[in-house]
Design a protein around this nucleic acid. Structure first.
Lengths: 104, 104, 104, 104
DNA sequence: GTGGTCTAGACCACG
DNA sequence: GTGGTCTAGACCACA
């Protein structure tokens, strides 16, 4: 659905993996402001995990303001959380090890 | 002082160059929460530019919430703006063109 | 302006009176997050006292994080400092002497 | 154990009731800095509810900084979260309905 | 339909 | 012992 693949053997808890994948898609602009996330029921079924776990990942996104939810309606991407690609690359150059980046 | 080097010939205005360098150091964790930025007076002297230019760069950081300015005290790095290297790299992989990153 | 009345004969110093009144209005929600406080110039004129005194009251609020001061703009109410009336009353019931509260 | 009584019929979710009671005891000084909270296992057994629910209440306290926890050890009250009784009463006078307070 | 809450289990890593 | 995570159910209120 969203191209999310989980690794059961990872040290990262499942809820954190989901949180990260969604946050990436939001910050990179794949999920845009006001886009609806899949329902917890849908995504949990899709990933083959418990609905609670998806719910916890959504709570993390809510807590950090990436996502908004209202009673009885879908969880949606908040506004103003997109990061410019140019800023992102500049940031990479200073904070990622050189072996990860190609020469300019 | 902060390892900032400006390029006078760059297309990027000086204030944006300063803004980016500081933002990078903040997001990458070199400048940590509550660290004080140098005063505009100090930094402008250090870089050999106008204090106004530094002030404008600081305002950009304030406007985006990376930095906080309390009455009568130094401008300080806000909380919760540090980005985990793992998160950053994950974000790059999904949102930067492949030509910029080395293969895993 | 904010319904602040000072008592010159009180044991409480003026700056503490101002501090308390503003803190109350903030915690009770009369002043909401991001609301601007009046400028020190304005409020001091309004109350007929020195601008320094108002400034000191503001500093106390800043020091406790109730209020934020961003470069070149008004002093504003911080986020997350509002206290639900229900929470407040519950807190009173456990921590204030009974003689101060009416029976339920 | 901590004098917590839950109301199953309340509109307030159980986790919020627990959160509130603990927050009160912390802000009022009954639970002091570095005091250990009961373990989630203990408290859940004591209250006759699921350990998950207690854990969620603890998470809320952690998120707001009232409480701190480290791997494998007890959850403890954070520092600097106590509220002076005089400030509390002053706050009550402005933000609680008069019918709740006795005359001065 | 949606999310919010709750249960009664389980296994893990840390100390 | 502790908290952290996860499961597979359940019932609720809201729209």
């Amino acid at each position: 659905m969203l191209g999310i693949e989980l690794e059961r053997e990872s040290e990262q808890p499942l809820k954190r993996q989901i949180y990260q994948k969604l946050k990436e898609q939001i910050m990179s602009g794949k999920l845009k402001s006001n886009d609806a996330l899949p329902s917890t029921r849908e995504l949990s079924k899709d990933l083959g995990i418990s609905r609670n776990t998806v719910g916890e990942a959504y709570e993390m996104l809510i807590a950090e303001g990436f996502v908004i939810n209202r009673q009885g309606s879908a969880t949606r991407v908040a506004e103003g959380v997109y990061m410019e690609q140019s800023d992102l690359f500049a940031l990479c150059k200073t904070s990622l090890p050189k072996r990860m980046l190609k020469a300019d």
